[in-house]
Structure formats: structure tokens, C-alpha cells
């Protein structure tokens, strides 16, 4: 079994938002809404500053509260790589999943259903990287199988300091950020 995830090298990311634009064109994300976004996290006082830049999206959690709380069975874990997806035609738009997601990764599509990052499953199934990964001009994003000990992801995780976001919430996020 595969477990899809991402490793993102914050050392290289410049916060250019190419990943955001690419997601929008690839997936036709409606105007004014984003499946992925950039966070600039600045610490210190001028001129002694430290800034981490992160590209964020749904973490495709291994323990996804958005799936557990869904009253309609619309939010579900896809067999392929544990990707968390939503059946548009089962969703009542109750927003429970939005309340349940600590990352605020979901939104309501103008057509009424809950929507979010799909890990570009339609591309991954065809052997391609997600759109955001394949566009990134700094090559700072890596997509692959976390269950495969030989994957690029695990090589990076084994060799570099990293963290995942809001692990306290117990969701077991599958996106890791290299320092």
C-alpha cells in the first residue's frame, strides 16, 4: 500500500505562489478561492530576523477529522495513497469538515459542496506529479510514497530536520517541512 505525502524544502521556497496559480489553472479553482496558499512566518526584530516561507494545503491527514465528522460520507479516504477526497454529490455543505480541519484547508465551492486539495489525484493516477509540484521553479516540493523507505521523501526526511504542522491536533498530517 502506498501512503502519499509531500516533503517541502522551506530553504528553497521563495513564496512566489506559482504553486497556487498552477493549482488554479490545472483544477479550475474558482476565482477568489485557493486550495493552496503561502505562509510567511517571520520571527525576530529588524534586522535580526528569521523568515520561514511555506506553501500549505490539505495535509491529507492519516487521522482525518474532516472525514470522521462528515455526516454524509462525502469526505472519504481514497484507497489510492490515503488521499482525502470529497464526493461532490454526497456533500450537504454542512461545513462540519471545515470546522474540523485545524489547517483551514477546505472551502465551499460556489456550487455548494466542500472542496480542497485532491493531491491532483487525476495526475498522480497517470504517473505525474501534482500540478503545484511540477510547476515549482525552485524545485522545493517533493511528492511521493511515504510508505516506500527508498522514496525521495524518506531520504530527505531521514537526512534533514523537519516538522509537520499542528501535530498537537492529532491529525497525523502527511506534509512535512524541511527546515
Amino acid at each position: 500500500m502506498a501512503r502519499f505525502g509531500m516533503v517541502i524544502d522551506t530553504k528553497k521556497c521563495v513564496g512566489c505562489m506559482d504553486c497556487v496559480v498552477a493549482c488554479k489553472t490545472e483544477n479550475n479553482v474558482p476565482e477568489g478561492l485557493n486550495r493552496d496558499w503561502i505562509v510567511q512566518d517571520v520571527k525576530g526584530t529588524y534586522p535580526t530576523l528569521n523568515m520561514q516561507i511555506r506553501t500549505e494545503r490539505c495535509n491529507h491527514c492519516d487521522n482525518p477529522p474532516c472525514v470522521y465528522c462528515c455526516p454524509c460520507g462525502a469526505s472519504h479516504i481514497h484507497e489510492l495513497g490515503g488521499v482525502v477526497l470529497v464526493y461532490h454529490d454526497k456533500c450537504s455543505g454542512c461545513k462540519a469538515c471545515m470546522a474540523a480541519c485545524p489547517y483551514d484547508a477546505r472551502f465551499i465551492h460556489p456550487d455548494g459542496y466542500a472542496n480542497k486539495c485532491t493531491f491532483c489525484i487525476h495526475r498522480v493516477e497517470n504517473g505525474m506529479d501534482p500540478a503545484c509540484v511540477s510547476v515549482c521553479p525552485t524545485h522545493c516540493m517533493y511528492f511521493g510514497d511515504l510508505d516506500d523507505p527508498n522514496s525521495e521523501l524518506n531520504k530527505l526526511l531521514n537526512s534533514r530536520k523537519h516538522r509537520a504542522l499542528i501535530t498537537e491536533a492529532g491529525t497525523k498530517p502527511q506534509i512535512f517541512y524541511l527546515d
Partner: peptide, 17 residues
């Protein structure tokens, strides 16, 4: 000091849920 900027601007989510 901690200064966080987020480019996401999704309806019903930003600036606060």
C-alpha cells in the same frame, strides 16, 4: 515578535473562520 502573513483569502475562512 512573530509576524505571519497568509496569502489564502478564502470565503468563510479568512481572515477568521
Amino acid at each position: 515578535m512573530n509576524e505571519i502573513t497568509i496569502t489564502r483569502n478564502n470565503h468563510l475562512i479568512d481572515p477568521t473562520l
